[in-house]
Design a protein around this nucleic acid. Structure first.
Lengths: 355, 355
DNA sequence: CTGAAAGCGCTTACAG
DNA sequence: CTGAAAGCGCTTACAG
């Protein structure tokens, strides 16, 4: 509990070497180009050596104040306890640190008031830009911010024409449909997620469209809204399984909703993969490890996070950018193949817990 | 894409009102006590009105530079994609914002090199203090930091005598044992987690001690190390279920490990709650929603996060503090009660997903 | 190649 | 009750 670790300043180095602080600054923190002409080779070396010895780290508050650039970005997500967003954030953190950016991340619970409030906090903290993982389809807040010149990108969900990095959810929905069509399912249903999120909307649309194209249009009552979590999936599945003509297969737009649906199926005495086929979305690490492994459409979550940072970095550099849409793949498992089917494949995005 | 939203400064307000910037500062940002004697009532009011109108927000970099206090705290966790840590972080964020603190959070994957590296980054960012959710039992890094005068607290896991907020994991392990003893299980096993984390160690110790006290000591081969995730739990369970004398009940020190164990049980043709009892830990929202609901020891995750911030705030205020240990409760469900048993109870900590 | 000066936006004794 | 000054630790033209 002794030395409160008083940080080393440029001045300390300059004084010790009998140089001016500006010279030291140029050598240590100057732009790559400047740095060469910052001082004689010998002087530069003495500066660098001493800096290393003393453990010099520039004071970011001073730098930010002077340069009007904080190298801070704000990340807003519905909730970090959603594995999907947590994984996306891991990608964001990785890439941010490569770009020399630090991140603030905050939960908004998908509530407009909180989104607005937390955005203000971030701006008050003088972030250079924002990444929204909680964009609402109406884009009200986002349009306002853009009009004010706030720089941001979206991840996971798109809205309006704001730059975004998403999974091609529509295509993902089609993949799920394709797979179930292949397995001969004609009476199918969708647990569709929340209507303010492009993810659920697009996945549902892709699925419904593909079935329509196959000549098997889905009646409206077999597309049910739901929250994205397990409890939401369970409720939606109850509704579907209580219907007179029970579906033989369900597509849930989220793995957690799918797990909830699996619970409901069990309550109805249905065996997954035998009496009821089930497809989830995102291929979270849990999907493969469930008692009855879950067929799921894999989305590149971590990669989305990384690319969102890259995109934002380009926005901050004043470049004009284009949205990106990453390709999903379907991973077939027992929940659609029956107890015999193994059929795992692919690998890509890692995951796992530790606590 | 127009006005880059140039923030309002004290100077802008002062000039517009014909006052000195120091007067404005005292009124707007002065300590609660000072603020009263900062200016005449009338002047103060004019200042406040204009500040509101212009949307003044103090530049935190300037404030930090001047006061040598950043109001920033760093949070290190093994991984945010671990629901337990993500939930703890939600509590941290809530409390931090109440204390006027902003948080940086980063994943260390429980790797010592990363822990060290990320700690340095945080310190370079000039955080006022740190919360470690990834403390290793050996406390090597933590001892060093404490010696340097770095201020921090631990959450979820304790180490050495550093201030911490944890669940009473030992007691939690005893609860699990008690419950299985009540149900008549004598041949039991533990999926014990990783040996560097106090959580797994204490939960295991409590369980083992309680069984020993009941006159039923556990042989060593029925306590198996594991990672904290689903795949780890599955592997550990395979080992246990392949043993000649198969256990009738398993205590997994983590819900995710328990879910993995449930998968292994199924592969062995065992029905959960009938042929094999299973108890998890943390009572994550998933536990209640699984096809076969999981008995689990509930730990107050969000509350731990909140209290860790309160504790750190006291440390930063120079107060002497004591570690806190919060009480766990057991929630019994079908995985130990058989398919008949419902027996849910309690409510406390919320949760849920959204993506 | 190096130094001196100004200034980013704040806070805080110190005067008056 | 209010103002003037100094300074937190940097960066960046501008001289020389």
């Amino acid at each position: 509990m002794a030395n409160r670790r008083r940080p080393v300043t440029l001045r300390a180095i300059a004084d010790q070497l009998g140089l001016d602080v500006s010279t030291v600054s140029r050598v240590l923190n100057g732009a790559a180009g400047d740095r060469a002409r910052a001082a004689s080779g010998a002087t530069a070396q003495r500066i660098r050596d001493l800096a290393t010895e003393l453990g010099y780290r520039p004071n970011p508050h001073a730098t930010s104040l002077r340069t009007q650039r904080s190298n801070l970005i704000g990340v807003l997500v519905p909730r970090l306890s959603d594995l999907v967003l947590a994984t996306i954030y891991e990608g964001i953190e990785e890439a941010a640190s490569q770009h020399g950016l630090s991140t603030f991340v905050t939960n908004t619970r998908d509530e407009p008031d909180k989104q607005r409030d937390r955005t203000e906090m971030m701006l008050a903290r003088r972030v250079d830009g924002l990444i929204f993982g909680d964009a609402h389809a109406d884009a009200v807040l986002l349009d306002e911010l853009a009009a004010q010149g706030v720089r941001f990108v979206l991840v996971s969900r798109w809205a309006g024409s704001h730059p975004s990095v998403t999974c091609d959810d529509y295509q993902g929905g089609r993949l799920a449909a394709e797979h179930l069509l292949d397995r001969g399912h004609e009476r199918v249903a969708v647990i569709a997620g929340e209507p303010h999120a492009s993810t659920g909307l697009d996945r549902t649309a892709g699925f419904v469209d593909r079935y329509r194209e196959a000549g098997v249009p889905l009646p409206e009552h077999r597309v049910v809204r739901s929250r994205f979590d397990t409890a939401g999936g369970r409720q939606a599945a109850e509704l579907l399984l209580d219907q007179a003509e029970r579906p033989s297969a369900i597509f849930a737009v989220n793995d957690f909703a799918a797990i909830g649906a699996a619970g409901a199926a069990r309550d109805h005495g249905l065996r997954l993969g035998e009496d009821l086929a089930l497809v989830g979305f995102n291929d979270t690490p849990l999907a493969a490890e469930l008692p009855i492994p879950l067929t799921s459409v894999r989305s590149p979550m971590r990669e989305m996070g990384r690319r969102a940072v890259d995109l934002l970095a380009r926005v901050l550099a004043g470049q004009r950018v284009e949205s990106e849409r990453l390709t999903p793949t379907l991973v077939a498992r027992a929940s659609t193949l029956g107890s015999t089917g193994a059929g795992d494949s692919h690998d890509d995005d890692g995951g796992g817990n530790a606590g």
